[in-house]
């Protein structure tokens, strides 16, 4: 890992197009300003971590019980027992959905990110003393 020392208001430039500026420090916090083209995603590491943890929690074994337990006829009010799993009948086999069939009734808009560079300020916890990690 490259470790650089910077003072407040000093920058780091990555790939000639991404500017990371130390905006200020407050105790344990370093406030960073990041200026990057719109096609460069900038997120806190925690965003990846929490989605990853959520995915792991969402991993489900066995489709029918899982899907029916959320798709079931009712979401029982809190305090009542959940509906018993339904034994799938042989007459209602599930089939792979051909891509030609629109399975998403209405597609949410996927706006294209604006081309203009954006400045984002991301407070992050202060890292260890420079040179402390490899």
């Amino acid at each position: 890992m490259l470790v650089l020392s910077r003072k407040v208001n000093e920058n780091i430039i990555i790939d000639g197009r991404i500017v990371v500026k130390v905006v200020r420090t407050e105790g344990n916090f370093v406030k960073l300003g990041i200026e990057a083209p719109a096609d460069v995603p900038v997120h806190r590491q925690e965003v990846y971590d929490e989605i990853q943890r959520n995915n792991q929690a969402a991993l489900t074994s066995g489709r029918p019980a899982a899907a029916r337990s959320v798709a079931g006829p009712a979401h029982p009010p809190a305090g009542t027992a959940a509906a018993a799993p339904i034994i799938p009948s042989a007459s209602s086999p599930s089939a792979p959905i051909p891509p030609a069939v629109p399975i998403v009734p209405a597609v949410p808009t996927v706006p294209v990110a604006p081309a203009a560079p954006t400045t984002r300020t991301v407070p992050i916890a202060q890292t260890k003393t420079p040179g402390g990690s490899a």
Binding site: L59, T60, R68, S92
Partner: peptide, 27 residues
């Protein structure tokens, strides 16, 4: 991606090589 009418709007995103594992997904 699997689905059946009685489970709408939920679908089942099943791992191809590990069919017992997957994710319930929804539009």
């Amino acid at each position: 991606l699997l689905g059946s009418p009685e489970e709408e709007p939920f679908l089942w995103l099943q791992m191809l090589d590990n069919p017992s594992q997957g994710f319930v997904v929804v539009s």
